[in-house]
Write a protein that binds this DNA or RNA. Sequence first.
DNA 1: AAAAAGCATGCCATATAAAGAGCGCGAAAT
DNA 2: ATTTCGCGCTCTTTATATGGCATGCTTTTT
Lengths: 111, 111
Amino acid sequence: MPYKEREINKLYYTMGEVTEMFDVNASQIRFYEREFDILQPKKNKKGNRLFTQEDISNLKIIFNLVKEKGYTLQGAREFLRTNKNEAKENQRVVDSLERLKSFLLEVRDSL
Amino acid sequence: MPYKEREINKLYYTMGEVTEMFDVNASQIRFYEREFDILQPKKNKKGNRLFTQEDISNLKIIFNLVKEKGYTLQGAREFLRTNKNEAKENQRVVDSLERLKSFLLEVRDSL
DNA sequence: AAAAAGCATGCCATATAAAGAGCGCGAAAT
DNA sequence: ATTTCGCGCTCTTTATATGGCATGCTTTTT
């Protein structure tokens, strides 16, 4: 009989659990769900939300950005969006700078 | 048209210059002055504001945080309190790159 | 069965934040 | 002397963010 961490690795959290966890009310969670694409909890046949660990994690990030860091919802959205593509963006910047460098060398040589 | 990092910097900027520089209206600048301790432009005998280079620099940082990054004023205040030096340095780099960019654009157009 | 609890959607109300607008005044410039 | 600019002040407006309610449907409890 293998050891299972059922409590810790819960599959799904209910709306009530989530509101208690973050000490907010349900309408705010639903509101955030509308505001942030990354929040997409599953729903059961009845329609009740089933928040995954991933959803909880995303909510933590969002609440941190908004409540601790002082981002607007808009700002938090953009932050999340650009952090997702962080690697891509870095590469893009590097490429851009490389092109810039060779251009500068050309300019210098033409003077 | 040589590229110069350093520009001849004015000692003081008037309210009109500042509002045009940031494309905002005066009440917002005055508002920010109340909201951010860091903003303390001098005033002449008449009471008109004399914005120093330092004030401009601080305004740039604030506008970047609020308009680009999506911070609330409250969030920007806290950010500045703990990251003022880093923010300054970042802004310095950004300014430098933007001057470089416009220089490059001029070069391109002159070809 | 009846009552209560939990959650759904949808709409409206509220609070605060952020920005803009109007005004009368005065100094300086044209 | 008229215009321009900016002052402080106050009032409004707009946007953001959150809360709350009405109603209805299941599930759980009494």
